[in-house]
Simulated scan of single mutants.
Amino acid sequence: MAAISASLVKELRERTGLGMMECKKALQEADGDIDVAIDNLRKNAGLKSAKKASRVAAEGVVTVRVADDASYAALVEINSETDFVARDDNFKAFAARISDAVFESKNEDIAALMEGELEEARSQLVQKIGENISVRRAAIVEAQEGGHVGGYVHGDRIGAVVSLKGGNVETARDIAMHVAAINPAVALPENMPQEQLDHEKAIILAQPDMAGKPAEIAEKMVQGRLKKYLAENSLVNQPFVKDPNQTVANFAKEAGGEVIGFVRFEVGEGIEKEEVDFAKEVMEQARR
């Protein structure tokens, strides 16, 4: 059985809201796999959902730039090893330079973009500050004919761009703010991957209240819960963060717009970060 660290229990508690002992037991039964533990809790304890992992692997910034005519926008993530460096003026200047280069060239290919002067600037910055600096990813979002894009950045760490058919840039920006805050899985229900729907269906079928139900009743219950799942995780069906009495789709419609899609970047998301126990490290050094 894998050793269950306090930090892992803490993360599961933050993501589920359950008690410490329940989380520790779930992790032990899942051999330390937090995603498996969450699935098992959802099956056995009726847990409806869990927050997405908040632990990130890298520091840095996300930048968003939108063209004056709202015809396109650029998102970029630039990483540093520590938050201290991410606040450094030299790092910020480098990040702005990269953001400008992506925006002006409309080039998402980081490898190609970083050839020549920009890579030299990165290398010099690494030598100057003593930390690794990397340009992780970039995205260009272009508006459809007659449409608009709008962007929003929250605290230099979360950026989002929304594309609308029709509408206006202010509406697109407000919806981008919603995307940054709520982090929907997809823009439209039909965009949800079948693999994810199959996974959710398996969890629903394993929940206690499904036991012994006739097949046709169970299927109706599954479809009802999947419909609710899609509503909760699809941008257009979510209650709009600035006015929960209407959906995002309705908010866009009031401005003559229709949501086409979105892109959202969050600093360090999806990167595994090694947890360092500094007290243990000091003790080991002292014993040498």
Rank of each mutant, 00 (worst) to 15 (best):
Q124T: 11
E145L: 11
G116E: 05
D156T: 10
V141P: 02
I110R: 08
E145F: 11
M114V: 05
D109K: 07
G146R: 06
E142I: 10
E117H: 09
E131M: 05
V149E: 03
R122E: 03
Q127F: 09
H148Y: 12
H154E: 11
A121D: 14
N132Y: 06
I133K: 00
D109P: 10
I140A: 05
D109Y: 14
R157K: 13
H148W: 05
R137A: 03
I140N: 04
I110M: 11
D109G: 13
A138F: 02
D109S: 13
G151A: 10
I129T: 01
R122V: 07
L113Q: 05
S123E: 14
V135E: 02
G150A: 02
A121Y: 07
E119M: 11
V153D: 02
S123H: 11
S134Q: 09
E120G: 12
D156K: 09
A112L: 11
E131H: 03
H154S: 06
I133S: 00
A111V: 15
R157P: 05
A112Q: 15
G155L: 04
E115K: 15
D156Q: 09
R157E: 04
L118D: 06
E145Y: 09
G130K: 00
E120H: 14
H154D: 13
R136L: 03
R137P: 07
A143W: 06
Q124G: 08
G116P: 12
G147V: 07
R122W: 09
L118R: 07
R122K: 15
E119L: 13
Q144E: 11
G147F: 06
R122F: 02
R122Q: 13
A143N: 04
N132H: 12
Q144C: 11
M114A: 10
I133C: 00
L118P: 08
A139W: 03
A139E: 13
G151I: 13
E115V: 15
E131S: 04
A138P: 02
L125Y: 07
N132V: 08
H148C: 12
M114C: 14
A111R: 12
V149A: 03
A112Y: 13
G150L: 07
R136F: 06
A143E: 03
D109F: 12
M114I: 08
N132W: 03
V126M: 09
E120M: 12
G147Y: 12
E117P: 14
D109R: 06
I140W: 06
V141G: 03
L118G: 04
D109E: 14
E145V: 10
V141A: 03
I110P: 10
A121L: 12
I133F: 00
R136W: 01
R157M: 10
K128Q: 14
G147N: 06
V135H: 01
H148D: 02
E115A: 15
S123I: 05
Q144F: 09
E117Y: 11
G130A: 01
R122Y: 09
A138R: 00
H148R: 10
K128R: 15
A112G: 15
G147M: 08
E120S: 13
Q127G: 09
A139H: 08
G130D: 00
Q124Y: 07
R137C: 03
D156G: 10
Q124F: 12
V149P: 01
S123D: 14
V153E: 07
G130W: 02
I140F: 08
A143H: 05
R157N: 07
H154L: 06
L113H: 10
E117T: 12
Q127N: 14
R136T: 03
E142L: 04
V135I: 06
Q127L: 14
E145I: 08
